[in-house]
Structures are given as C-alpha cells and as structure tokens.
Amino acid sequence: MQSFHIYWTFTKKAFLRSAVYRFDVWSRLGSNLIFLLMWGSIWTALYAGREEAGGISFQAMLTYIVVSQFLTGVNGAGTPLWEIQEKVRTGDIALELMRPFNVPLRYLFADLGSVAFYAITALLPIYAILFIVMDFALPTSLWTWVIFIVAAFIGFLIRYCIEMAFGLLSFFLVETGGIEDVFYFAMSLLSGSVIPLWFFPEWLANIAVYLPFQGIYYIPNAIFIGEIAGGEILLSIGLQIFWVFVCFFLLRFVWHKASLKVVVQGG
C-alpha cells in the first residue's frame, strides 16, 4: 500500500503540472478537433449519401470515428515518447534509475494524471456537447457504457505498455527513426483507429485480429456502437486482458534488459 501511495503522488503532480500549461491543452484540443473534422468528412464522403455500407449504418460509422478520436485524445495526452528517449540520450534517465520506484509504473501513473486533467478540462466537455448536438448512436443500456469504459481503460494500458516497451528500444539503438515510423503506422492502421477492421481486406483483417493493436481502439469503439455485443463482449474483453498481460510482461522484460544496459552518453 505504501508503494501505491508513492505512485499516486506522481498522478497528482502530473495533474497539477498540466494545469500550468493551459495553452498546451487548448492547442492539443484544437488539433484533435481538426483531425475529427478530417475523418468525419472522409467517412461522410466514403458513404456518399448511402444509409449503410457493409452492414454498418452511416450513423454508427460516424459514431465510431467520434469515439475513436476521443480515445486518440486520451491516449495522446501522456508523456510523449521522445521525452523519455531524450532522457536516454542525455543520460538523465540515470537519475530515475537511482530512485526507489519502478520507472515504467511511475510514468504510467504520471500519465494518468495528465490524461485526467486533459479529459476533464477539454475532451469531455467538448465531446459531451458534440454528442448532445449531433445525432449519434449512443449506447442505450448502462451495461454497455460500463463495458465501454472498462474496454477503453484496458486499451489505454495496452497502448501504454506497447509504446513504452518500444520507446525503450532507444536504450539499445540510439537511433530508432525508421523502426519508429513503421511502428506508429502499424499502430494507427491495425488498431482500427481510423478504419474499422470490418472494412479491411480479408487477409489484412486476419493479420489484425492476431495482434494486440485492435484492443486499443477497435474493441472499445465497436462495443460503443453495439457492433460487438452479447457473448462477444466478454470474449473481446478477455482478449484485451490477455494482451495487456502479454504487453506488460514484454515491457517488464525490455525494461529489465534496458536498465542493465544503461549506456550514459557524454558527461
């Protein structure tokens, strides 16, 4: 319990720190909304006036994109990867290694704080207004809401573990440029963040279902619009839990290896 208290302090500090950079919050929100406009327009143009395509109604598809963009905002509000990589590059990471806490956990809890601030002050109010003004397919039962929040939270954890494990590769390769781009592309496409898996070509969908990325956006989004329903819900959540464990152990493994291999550059 004592250790939880330490990590909780990071959450509170990160929350307060975000409050200082208010302009940051606004610019981030502005950028998020522009991308929402972009994807909303793209899907409107793809449906081109049709009521439904591939068994998915236009309204449900639009809702999918809005929920996805909301979750993108949530997932993007934490410590940016380059900040950690910069610490590796400058050697500042050594200071963190000396302290009595687990560094990946400390960043996770700090992220929860900055995400909370961003969500409460910016994302939630704006998206609540959107949902009231526009005609979206909202879940009708409380159960779906609860399950959606659970799925979105697990998705957040999966994304955190994968991204962090990946970011720590910079311990081994001082330059990660190329691999990083492949990684972010895979994450944005295969997670279904902008195109749901059911519109994929079959072979690509078959690849995507065996990867952890779908747990980040596709599963929560599809639960929200009711495309994953009934018994499938528990299956999907189970799959997410499986992946969160795998990714967590991957992160622990990479972190363990990395901290043994700290090469402090320069002095």
């Binding site: 793209i42 143009a45 793809l46 449906y47 081109a48 395509a53 591939g54 330059e175 990660t176 440029g177 190329g178 691999i179 990083e180 781009d181 492949v182 972010y184 592309f185 944005s188 496409l189 902008v194 195109i195 519109f199 994929f200 070509p201 690509l204």
Partner: peptide
C-alpha cells in the same frame, strides 16, 4: 534510418488510403 523512416511513414499513409478505398472505391 531517417530516410527509410520517412519513406515508410509516407507509404503508410498511402496504404491507409488504399485500405480505405478497398471497399468504397471512391472518395468524393
């Protein structure tokens, strides 16, 4: 590495466009 990274990032967007149009054929 940076050149490879840039080329893959742009290819990524192109692939996303392709997947998007796989079912729909036309965007406006």
């Amino acid at each position: 590495m940076r050149i490879i990274g840039l080329v893959t990032a742009y290819t990524g967007t192109a692939v996303t466009m392709w997947v998007m149009l796989y079912q729909f054929q036309m965007l406006g």
